[in-house]
């Protein structure tokens, strides 16, 4: 019996670990009775997804996923939870429409499985993509080149959101001053 380390399925093991993280975290988000725990499970799930990006050699995407979702958005969610209701209380996450949501989720899952099964995916991906060192530059050139208009639209959307948030906060302040 010989052991060939180059045949050891590192990638498969990593894939299943990431799957457990992503799906387990997702189930935790829905099943947890505590809103704060749900948010923490969401972070675990997002980590699993960023692990997939690493396995796909998309390092930039993986790091941005952790930075934007786990580092910024999840922290804001945690923040909002702490401010919104009595944070140590256990509340039921489901309302009377849970069966409808479940039905929709199952339908969506069926559609996705159908698509994945029907499409004839190219198993031979053609030539290997260029060295990863250039991907950030390629992204930048793509954003400011062929995808300039979508990029600008997203920028305007974000600016609108930013200004809107400031306006909401300001209005409240002036109303307080009036009283």
């Amino acid at each position: 019996m010989s052991f060939d380390p180059s045949q050891f399925p590192f990638m498969e093991i990593a894939f299943w670990v990431m799957t457990v993280l992503a799906l387990g975290g997702g189930i935790g988000v829905v099943a947890s009775k505590n809103l704060f725990h749900s948010a923490l499970f969401l972070i675990v799930s997002l980590f699993g997804v960023s692990g997939y990006y690493v396995l796909l050699s998309a390092g930039f995407l993986a790091v941005v996923q952790v930075m934007v979702y786990a580092g910024a958005i999840a922290v804001l969610i945690l923040f909002a939870i702490m401010f919104s209701r009595r944070p140590m209380e256990k509340v039921s996450q489901a309302n009377h429409q849970w069966w409808l949501a479940l039905l929709m989720a199952v339908l969506l899952f069926a559609v996705l499985v159908g698509i994945v099964g029907l499409v004839d995916w190219p198993t031979d991906g053609g030539p290997e993509p260029a060295a990863a060192a250039t991907t950030v530059q390629q992204l930048g050139v793509a954003f400011l080149g062929s995808y300039l208009i979508p990029f600008m639209v997203v920028s305007i959307l974000l600016s609108v959101a930013l200004i809107g948030a400031i306006m909401l906060a300001r209005e409240k302040l002036e109303a307080e001053e009036m009283n």
Binding site: V63, M67, G71
Partner: peptide, 15 residues
Amino acid sequence: NVGLLYIIAIGGLGS
């Protein structure tokens, strides 16, 4: 090759 971003991403975990 994204070391600079990685620093920020991991730092976010601290918060």
